[in-house]
């Protein structure tokens, strides 16, 4: 009994805290949903939900907001995971956005993100009357996230008001909302990117293969390596995608997600690479550079 017990390790404490949060949502909220964005954080959150209710299944559906610009491998992975775990998956796409032909190339990243992600998410939450949405965001991702609550209150218009956030003490979460209002809940708040990868390694959680290095066709756009995932990618005359050995630290819409050159082919490789890197994962995301404090602004508009 003198050995350091597995239960007291760092990842074990984080896991227990996240499971507690997910159970509170299921117990106290009327219509919860889990946002499933297919990335590594979602993979971990889904795994934690499977643990939280075992031997039962999670008592809420998964929701994927599909912008129609995700990597094809992401969609294939999503469908495979849901089939394997036998869970209910809801998919929502902003039909108005599709009808108006909104996309990152034609409208720019800001408009595309607003219409196909933020507005689409709000439509989906309203459509199914969800009063709580679990998301995989972490506080170490970005400055304004560092101050966001685990249970983040949103108005009936889905707005985030930093001044109306509730103090969160101990393990006592206030989940109460009036009709129409909702909660965004972040069970991975206290995890870092490295924790996520170490946990994926420890638990052998499947993730999209795009996270691992492989020769992929890419072009350079404003210093970012963008993968040519389908024929919608406009190429300059004579321009050709080059095969480069790359991987992705974060996944989103393919035209807005920069790849990094890498040889990391396995989860331990990825962890080793992370320990050497000096740039954050958000560097690869085009949308975060659009304007100063852009994440904070997007969140006030209802972004996750």
């Amino acid at each position: 009994m003198t050995l350091p017990r597995a239960e007291t390790t760092h990842l074990h404490r984080l896991e227990a805290e996240s499971i507690h949060i997910i159970r509170e949502v299921a117990a106290e909220c009327e219509r919860p949903v889990m946002l499933y964005s297919i990335g590594k954080d979602s993979a971990v959150m889904l795994h934690l939900a499977m643990k939280a209710f075992f031997p039962a299944k999670p008592p809420f559906p998964l929701l994927h907001v599909d912008t129609t610009w995700k990597f094809r491998e992401m969609i294939a992975f999503r469908d495979e995971r849901v089939r394997e775990l036998r869970l209910e998956l809801l998919v929502h796409t902003n039909a108005d956005g599709v009808a108006s032909g909104v996309g990152p190339f034609s409208h720019g990243s800001a408009v595309h993100t607003d219409v196909m992600k933020t507005q689409a998410l709000k439509q989906a939450l309203d459509k199914w009357h969800f009063d709580a949405a679990l998301g995989g965001a972490r506080r170490d991702e970005e400055k304004s996230r560092a101050k966001e609550r685990i249970f983040s209150f949103r108005t009936a218009q889905h707005r985030w008001d930093p001044r109306r956030q509730r103090p969160e003490l101990w393990r006592l979460y206030n989940t109460r909302v009036h009709p129409g209002e909702s909660m965004r809940v972040f069970p991975l708040s206290n995890w870092t990117e490295l924790d996520v990868w170490r946990y994926i390694d420890q638990e052998k959680i499947p993730v999209v293969p795009l996270y691992f290095a492989k020769e992929r066709p890419v072009v350079e756009r404003d210093g970012a390596l963008i993968m040519v995932d389908d024929e919608r990618m406009p190429l300059a005359s004579g321009e050709q995608a080059k095969l480069r050995r790359v991987r992705f630290r974060t996944l989103g819409c393919y035209p807005l997600t920069g790849a990094v050159e890498s040889d990391a082919e396995t989860v331990p490789d990825v962890i080793a690479e992370m320990l050497r890197t000096r740039t954050s994962e958000r560097q690869g995301r085009v949308i975060d550079h659009d304007s100063a404090a852009s994440m904070e602004k997007k969140k006030q508009e209802g972004y996750f």
Partner: peptide, 21 residues
Amino acid sequence: DGLAAEREQGITIDVAYRYFA
């Protein structure tokens, strides 16, 4: 001082959580 609202007003509204290992 993470929030634009805080930076603009030179105040700190809130508890910020930081991570290192």
